[in-house]
């Protein structure tokens, strides 16, 4: 091997370099400026939420006793609780999830996997996106006319659940479509190539692999529905309720009962709204306590959505 002895020429100062350095420093400045602006912008949201939550906790913390969760509302602030409200919220959410999720997931999968690309599909797609932006009170008006009067469901848990199911549908449809679209086309081809039908491809591959995304959308949709007040007031939710609906399960066959669907109801945000609008700081403390419950519930649900997505995505690699 021939040996090479290279020579290196070193000079103290090269004319262009100083200019390059000052140029870099000048342009770097804007990096820093944007980083600061961006950080402040992000902080606004987080700090506001934190301030709000701290305020709620300071006002309502002392009311968060077991009794608060186990008492009906009362004319005496100190004895009032959120039993009927949280039970109502749970039952309404059950209806919302049971009706809204299958409808929205089916619709999302249909639009992605089955629907032909034509003007009708496009029209439906635009409408679904627009529905997400419709004010919730409008859903309330629709539900009042349709569920409460036309279909005769009355001012019941069923009507409330259906109303919120309609409301979360666009969110879940969009989440479903995005999740379905994220399944690589090569996976579908692989399944079709061994002779699978469209339904088999959907059932065995597309749906299972998009569950993380769909679940996230469902939980975020439900978390939004939990805080809804306006449409439920519109359909006639009660603000003072001192009884519980019949339990959905019983000890005698057939063990599942549906009487509760027709029961009157209240939900947490309406209970909170009711207490806020009363004079007297004692009730305001109750409102703050109910607020804490709602915020914690929402945060827990969102956190669970993130956890679920993380856990399930880890198992699916392409």
């Amino acid at each position: 091997m021939a040996s090479i002895s290279p020579s290196i020429a070193v000079e103290a100062a090269v004319p262009g370099v100083a200019e390059i350095r000052s140029n870099v420093v000048r342009r770097r400045r804007w990096d820093i400026v944007f980083a600061v602006v961006g950080f402040l912008a992000t902080s606004v949201g987080v700090v506001t939420l934190l301030a709000l939550f701290v305020d709620l906790v300071m006002d309502g913390y002392h009311r968060l006793t077991p009794d608060f969760f186990l008492s009906f509302p009362s004319r005496r602030a100190a004895e009032a609780g959120i039993l009927s409200a949280w039970v109502g919220t749970c039952l309404v959410m059950m209806v919302t999830a049971a009706i809204g999720v299958p409808l929205a997931v089916s619709a999302g999968i249909y639009l992605e996997e089955y629907a032909p690309r034509n003007w009708l599909t496009t029209l439906i797609e635009i409408n679904v996106s627009n529905l997400a932006a419709v004010p919730s009170i409008v859903y309330g008006l629709l539900a009042l006319g349709l569920f409460v009067y036309a279909l005769g469901f009355g001012q019941s848990i069923l009507s409330a659940g259906l109303t919120l199911a309609l409301m979360i549908m666009p969110v879940v449809v969009v989440a479903t479509r995005e999740a379905v679209r994220a399944v690589p086309h090569t996976i579908r081809e692989a399944a079709y190539a061994v002779g699978a039908t469209r339904w088999q491809v959907t059932r065995d591959h597309v749906l299972p692999y998009s569950i993380p995304g769909i679940a996230t959308g469902v939980i975020i949709g439900l978390a939004r529905a939990i805080g809804e007040t306006a449409p439920l007031i519109t359909i006639g939710a009660l603000t003072f309720i001192a009884y519980l609906p019949d339990p959905p399960i019983s000890t005698t066959p057939p063990f599942v009962r549906f009487d509760w669907l027709w029961s009157g109801f209240t939900v947490l945000p309406i209970q909170m709204f009711n207490w806020v609008s009363r004079p007297g700081t004692a009730f305001h403390a109750n409102a703050a306590a109910a607020g804490i419950v709602i915020v914690v519930l929402t945060l827990v649900m969102n956190g669970f959505a993130i956890y679920l997505r993380y856990r399930l995505r880890k198992r699916i690699t392409w």
């Binding site: 090569t186 996976i187 692989a190």
Partner: peptide, 19 residues
């Protein structure tokens, strides 16, 4: 086409095993 795919199978450009 499903009848055809049951008789003639295919291996693709990129390995595409199911997860």
């Amino acid at each position: 086409p499903i009848e055809v795919r049951m008789r003639i199978s295919m291996v693709f450009q990129k390995p595409n095993p199911f997860p």
